[in-house]
Structure formats: structure tokens, C-alpha cells
């Protein structure tokens, strides 16, 4: 599902990623683990085409990202859901409106959007928060909403950048359970974290990153 071949990313003289080669199969749940500045976020940004690599090739669902032109970028991004440490919810919109956005941009009809959003809210146990604004929710609830927004349009891949970084242990556990459930339903998950304990507890495949390089 995800393959990178000798991927480099430079910011001026600084090499954020150097010769990164990874392979993640369909339906796998993989951790990208490393200390701050290891290149985890950069790797994720390259995968959802937030940036282009300086060198190397990335294949997602058989598509070389070099071939994704600017015009086709939105359609490519609909295959991917992204979750951030700081949630990135739209503060001026309700939970429902936040979740409806990925479906709206894909041009789905109102009825379909309503049904789908209600369903996803039921799955994450927050259907009673539909009309709340993000600021009125706890950190754990906000992250569950962010995950729900990332998967409401049924993406093939879910990229999560430190999704538990801002959460207490209980909330972090709920979020991880949710990600595991999504993975069991077939979504490929790549989760970036600096938390080695979390990784070792899960028993999933791990890609270790340090100073922009992968190590075994």
C-alpha cells in the first residue's frame, strides 16, 4: 500500500530524511517511532503530499506520487485520512460540520452526509456532541472527532502524527483502541510517535527513525 524508495528531504543544508526505504502492506498497522526531530512528521507530510520529496520515489496504492499533478492532488488526498497531535479541528464549526467537511468536498449529497456523520459519531461514542463546538470538548474527545473526520470518507490509509501526544493515559488508550478498530476493518494505519512504551505494548510492526534515517 505504501512504499518509499531512497527518499530524501532536504530543508536547505539540513537533511530531514535520508535514504528512507519503507514498505507497508494493505491493512497493516505500523508505527513510525523515533525521538523529536527524527523525521516522523516529515515522512507523513511526504505521504499525504503536504510536501514533495527532494529525491526518491513514493508509491501509494500503486501510484507514484511524482505523477500526481497539482490538479489531481485533492482527489489523491481523498484516499488518505490524516490525524494531528493538535487535532486541527475548525473552531468556528460544530462537530457535525467538521465531520461533514471531507464528504462535502467530495460532493456527496446532504442526506448521505448526515447519515454517514451520525454513523461515525455513534462509532466513536460522541453522537450527543454533534452540535457542540470543538472548544467545549475535552482533548480526548477532540482527538476522537479528529480521527472520525479522518476516516468519515473511508480512506484507504490513515496517517496519525502523535495522536496521543496531548492526551492523558485513559484518553490515549481510547484513541488507540479506536485506531485498532479501524485497522481491523481494513484501513492501513501509519502512526508516528516518540513513545517507545506505546510501541512495545502494541506488538505491531515498527519503523525506527533517527536523524532522518531508518534503522532496524
Amino acid at each position: 500500500m505504501i512504499k518509499t524508495f531512497h527518499v530524501y528531504k532536504d530543508y536547505g543544508a539540513r537533511n530531514a530524511l535520508e535514504d528512507v526505504n519503507i514498505s507497508i502492506g494493505q491493512g497493516e498497522f505500523v508505527f513510525a517511532c523515533g525521538p523529536s526531530g527524527a523525521g516522523k512528521t516529515t515522512l507523513l507530510r511526504l505521504l499525504y503530499l503536504g510536501e514533495r520529496p527532494t529525491r526518491g520515489d513514493i508509491l501509494i496504492d500503486g501510484v507514484n506520487l511524482h505523477r500526481v499533478k497539482r490538479k489531481k492532488l485533492p482527489f489523491f488526498r481523498r484516499k488518505i485520512g490524516v490525524v494531528f497531535q493538535d487535532f486541527k479541528l475548525i473552531g468556528t464549526q460544530t462537530v457535525f460540520q467538521n465531520l461533514a467537511l471531507p464528504l462535502e468536498v467530495s460532493g456527496h449529497k446532504k442526506n448521505h452526509i448526515r447519515q454517514k456523520v451520525c454513523h461515525v459519531l455513534r462509532v466513536i461514542g460522541l453522537e450527543n456532541r454533534m452540535n457542540s463546538f470543538p472548544a467545549s470538548l475535552s482533548g480526548g474527545e477532540q482527538q476522537r472527532i479528529a480521527i472520525a473526520r479522518a476516516v468519515v470518507h473511508d480512506p484507504l490509509i490513515l496517517l496519525a502524527d502523535e495522536p496521543t501526544g496531548n492526551l492523558d493515559d485513559r484518553s490515549a488508550e481510547i484513541v488507540l483502541d479506536l485506531l485498532n478498530e479501524l485497522n481491523l476493518k481494513g484501513t492501513t494505519v501509519l502512526l508516528a510517535t516518540h513513545d517507545r512504551e506505546l510501541v512495545s505494548r502494541s506488538g505491531n510492526q515498527v519503523i525506527f527513525l533517527n536523524n532522518g534515517r531508518t534503522k532496524d
Binding site: 490524516v82 471531507p102 468536498v105
Partner: peptide
């Protein structure tokens, strides 16, 4: 921020 999120979730420039 909202526009950046819209781009992330696959909004076209037209949208």
C-alpha cells in the same frame, strides 16, 4: 487554518 484543513481533506481549489 480552515482552508489548510480543507485542502488536507481533499477540497479542490474550485471548492
Amino acid at each position: 487554518d480552515e482552508l489548510e484543513i480543507m485542502q488536507l481533506v481533499g477540497a479542490t481549489r474550485y471548492f
